[in-house]
Design a protein around this nucleic acid. Sequence first.
DNA 1: ACGGTTTGTTGTACCGCTGAACTATTACGT
DNA 2: ACGTAATAGTTCAGCGGTACAACAAACCGT
Lengths: 407, 407
Amino acid sequence: MPATSTTSAQTGPPSGPAASRQHTLRERNLRLVASAVFGATTPPSRADVAAATGLTRATVSTLVDRLLAGALVVELPPVAVQRAGRPAVPLVPAARTVVGLGLEVNVDYLGVRALDLVGDVVAERVVSGSFHDSDPGGVLGRLRGLALEAIAEVDGGGMRVAGARLALPGLVDSRRGRLEVAPNLGWSLIDPVDVLDLHTGDGEPLAVEVANEAKLAALAELAGDVPSSFLYVSGDVGVGAGIVVDRRLFLGERGWNGEIGHVVVDPSGPRCSCGNHGCLEQYAGKEVLLRDSGLSVSAPLGAVADLLRSGDDAAAAAVRRGGQALGAALATFVNLVDVSTVVLGGAYAELFDWLGEVVAETVRSRALAAPFAPIDVRPAAAGPHAALSGGAREVLRAVVSDPAGWV
Amino acid sequence: MPATSTTSAQTGPPSGPAASRQHTLRERNLRLVASAVFGATTPPSRADVAAATGLTRATVSTLVDRLLAGALVVELPPVAVQRAGRPAVPLVPAARTVVGLGLEVNVDYLGVRALDLVGDVVAERVVSGSFHDSDPGGVLGRLRGLALEAIAEVDGGGMRVAGARLALPGLVDSRRGRLEVAPNLGWSLIDPVDVLDLHTGDGEPLAVEVANEAKLAALAELAGDVPSSFLYVSGDVGVGAGIVVDRRLFLGERGWNGEIGHVVVDPSGPRCSCGNHGCLEQYAGKEVLLRDSGLSVSAPLGAVADLLRSGDDAAAAAVRRGGQALGAALATFVNLVDVSTVVLGGAYAELFDWLGEVVAETVRSRALAAPFAPIDVRPAAAGPHAALSGGAREVLRAVVSDPAGWV
DNA sequence: ACGGTTTGTTGTACCGCTGAACTATTACGT
DNA sequence: ACGTAATAGTTCAGCGGTACAACAAACCGT
């Protein structure tokens, strides 16, 4: 439609929320029903869903039928409950029908993981390596190979791939799918989506969105027993964070938030690569912890844990110093965004037994809201390569929150 | 309805989003139309609204009729535009029909302001004073008196009061309407809504919500030409902030975010009342700026401006030091929440001519995202007592975003 | 004066939810 | 064994709300 150059008002094009038509009701209620089924602790019946959502059983029935047709939900055999009345048909997320793909390139590994709606891993490829100052094209080509294998496997099982998320350790413009800079990879100004050029089994182009690694790892925590709002801190060479409020990522203006690694802990401290002095990374970065423990910066973090277990003084001091710095930076973080739970992931999860208490004490003594709402510091519950699961989950969340597009 | 003790599923009560029925469409589209009229730069016609929203002219007509009936919108006389066709009827927000009430208790004044949908001030009462370590009951009683005067005035003009927001300089639990603590007032654990006990002209109880002063002041900036996401920093005795993303306040878990005053600028700095060392308030708080300029801590801030104008060295040094500290803290803030515009309000707006450049330079040199998206530092555009306008605007925003409740 | 153009209104069709009646399937009491 | 109560799920008329198309209103240019 050409611009009809209607004059007068400058209300602009339909930019904001769209008009609600009849089918908008369908979409919204379909999402409501899907959320009720996917979010329930016990497989609910249609009647349960009706009670939980406020819709009538009639409406729920038609909506559930649609979800069944789309293979997002399946019926379990009616369970004989000791009670009068027709037995209920439990509804559960469908296994192995629709999957989300998580992709990741990190400093020491790259990988792919496919999750289905139940949360099961249905395909996975992870390879270790060292990707410091690596060649983006080559590395992404390898990742593409892994992804194609996973897609083929998933496709062979008769499943559909709903989409993919690529996790990268750097500043990502999610909107344009562009990596601005990833210092630890030595990458800058890359359009990884073009390089990956992924397609589903039937040739359709596969939607790949790019996001920061720590933020997707944060989302992986939602699979476990975690409050609806928390900070997730991913300790690695760099230190990044994801802010989750109400089970959703808070991204700020462009998704470049959570850069806790460059909170200045002490302006008279050592110089950081970012140009400032005394950034958190200079106290609690993985390489610093290794070095101050008397190990090689390329050693695995488990070596520090081994030293700590054997009572090594240098390692204990390094971890103590790092923990205090991390606690101080987290107190600032908590004061600025107001979240009462902190999840320590990555290297910090591995060292939690020695690090947790120091961090918790420091945060609690410095956070303003601590007297009113105690701050919980806990280790990450998601397994290794959390960003893979987080990315896959995010794809599936989009499916559940807009089932209309998949039925 | 008693708990029917239905067994099986634990989907719980209808807690999340409610079911969408036919009238949900109405509500949503009514909001859409209202937003189109209220957000337009030029008074739009029904046809313009239809084009902007994607609704048909028929639907827009019926919805506009409802807004006209509810006196949220009025028609202007058709303007003879030099063009073929029937002249359009411009629609504008209705003046002096519905008002929002902003209330505030601060350290050196208390007041009430009533704004109508056009943004005009239709009633205002502000009294100066010193409320350091004051008696909550007495002060809130005085505020109640001012509010009653304003309500009577508004009511006499035939307007309806849609609600009220109370701004307080402290930690507020917005959900429960409770003030946890306001150090500079010397208040703690107050339920101001009960004390105020406000009613509209026709005896209905008036909904009063409590919020932090800096956050409401931030919302006042939305009246002017400001990007949709920004940080607002309110410099006074304490230093607070509001985070606005997408023209909405980001509140974190409980609305206790933005406590930039206690970002540690230098851990070897002077001790702060919060228990830490080297908090921003110890460098850029109003009293520190006055003291370091060689003035009494109770002097008005204009005195510092006078000294600066006359080229006083001590004042210049104090402001320079404060500006650098503020810039450093803001860089941390920007790194953690990702917002590319910083609005300096309160004392900092008054001193912007001398402070702005130092702050901007410091932020730009330290914020990680600065090379990719330059950070704009600007003075607040809202007038004095910004929180009053922000609170009133917030009430009206609620009306516009749910017009169904007011027609 | 008359066709062309844009605005706003009227009436019909259609879509999706509700509510009530109906069927299906179990438990329980006699 | 049989009827009654209880619960789950389905069917169908009714109704609210939007779209679409036709129409009336008010202006322009020639």
